[in-house]
Design a protein around this nucleic acid. Structure first.
Length: 305
DNA sequence: ACGCACGAGCGTCACAAGAC
DNA sequence: GTCTTGTGACGCTCGTGCGT
């Protein structure tokens, strides 16, 4: 004897079907039959939109815009990071991959890209590139138009020697006679950008993923024309130097935030992808359960004729 | 060919949470 | 208390599809 009892399909409550098997076992099938939804993907993004809508409804009711926007921001900002959410999901569901603490290989990071060290000095060239010199002589070249870590290059100067304290100097020349970009680094060496990519439009740079290549050469001439010299923070005294230092700090902060935003967006996309795949899995499961239920109904329901 | 709408991606700002 | 990191929001640019 099997009894199938439908219940609770009211708005907001999932449909629950009770199936009593001949053995006396009762099976709860919850939410198997769902009302059509506009979208199967219900990411936290959507949830936040809903929260925002509620908040705005309150706003129109109470006419307290400032307080409400604060409240809304509070609600929105309480949402944990994508990494946390996804890792929580993955701990519940075995098949869902975790977002690694560090960047995974998934996105195809070129092997010649090193991880970004904390720079101690940062400079912007006349063509918009950023050159950061970290402790230990690592030079990082960041092209503002390129995509993600692909715009970040690290060159480690193995024989640059220890610069005098507070005296890191970058000497930059806009363009040399052979059409390459050059800048000079401690240790009397020259970093030369190859001709093939200078000021590539940011769209195509992102699409093709091509990067500027740099070579370390011995200087062929004395100081070139148009040399720009910048001092590191160690020897700052005048207001102008302080202003430069503030600008430098700001540039560094912006560069870091730029990278952080890229990383955050990458995680967000990964998170949404995971949710989508999870939805697909659940849909398959759901379908199977429905079929199973139908089979059980067929087997166990008493024949009338 | 042109204009428009739309979506994706980006840089920046503001702010909360966590680290130190 | 200060610094760093992560993320939502905003505005911008660019590519694409579509109608005219």
């Amino acid at each position: 004897q099997v009894s199938v009892a439908g219940s609770g399909t009211g708005r907001g409550s999932p449909a629950v079907t009770l199936v009593q098997l001949p053995s006396g076992q009762t099976v709860h099938v919850q939410g198997v039959i769902q009302t059509p939804q506009p979208s199967v993907i219900q990411s936290p993004q959507i949830q936040t939109v809903q929260v925002a809508t509620i908040a705005e409804t309150d706003e129109s009711a109470e006419s307290e815009g400032v307080i409400d926007s604060h409240k809304r921001r509070e609600i929105l900002s309480r949402r944990p990071s994508y990494r946390k959410i996804l890792n929580e999901i993955s701990s519940d569901v075995p098949g869902v991959p975790k977002i690694e603490e560090e960047k995974s290989e998934e996105e195809g990071t070129p092997p010649n890209i090193a991880t970004m060290a904390v720079p101690t000095s940062i400079y912007q060239t006349s063509t918009g590139q950023y050159i950061a010199i970290a402790q230990g002589g690592t030079i990082q070249i960041s092209n503002p138009g390129s995509d993600g870590v692909q715009g970040l290059q690290a060159l480690t100067m193995t024989n640059s020697g220890a610069p005098p304290p507070g005296a890191t100097i970058v000497q930059y020349a806009a363009q040399s006679a052979d059409g390459t970009q050059q800048f000079f680094v401690p240790g009397s060496q020259v970093v030369v950008q190859d001709q093939q990519r200078q000021r590539v439009p940011k769209r195509s740079a992102a699409a093709t993923g091509d990067m500027p290549t740099y070579q370390i050469r011995a200087p062929t001439t004395a100081l070139p024309q148009g040399v720009v010299m910048a001092a590191s923070p160690g020897s700052l005294h005048s207001p102008q130097q302080l202003a430069e230092e503030a600008t430098r700090k700001r540039e560094l902060r912006l560069m870091k935030n730029r990278e952080a935003a890229k990383e955050c967006r990458r995680r967000k996309k990964e998170y949404v992808k995971c949710l989508e795949s999870r939805v697909a899995v659940l849909e398959v499961q759901n379908k199977k359960l429905i079929e199973e239920l139908e089979t059980l109904k067929d087997i166990c329901s008493p024949k009338t004729d």
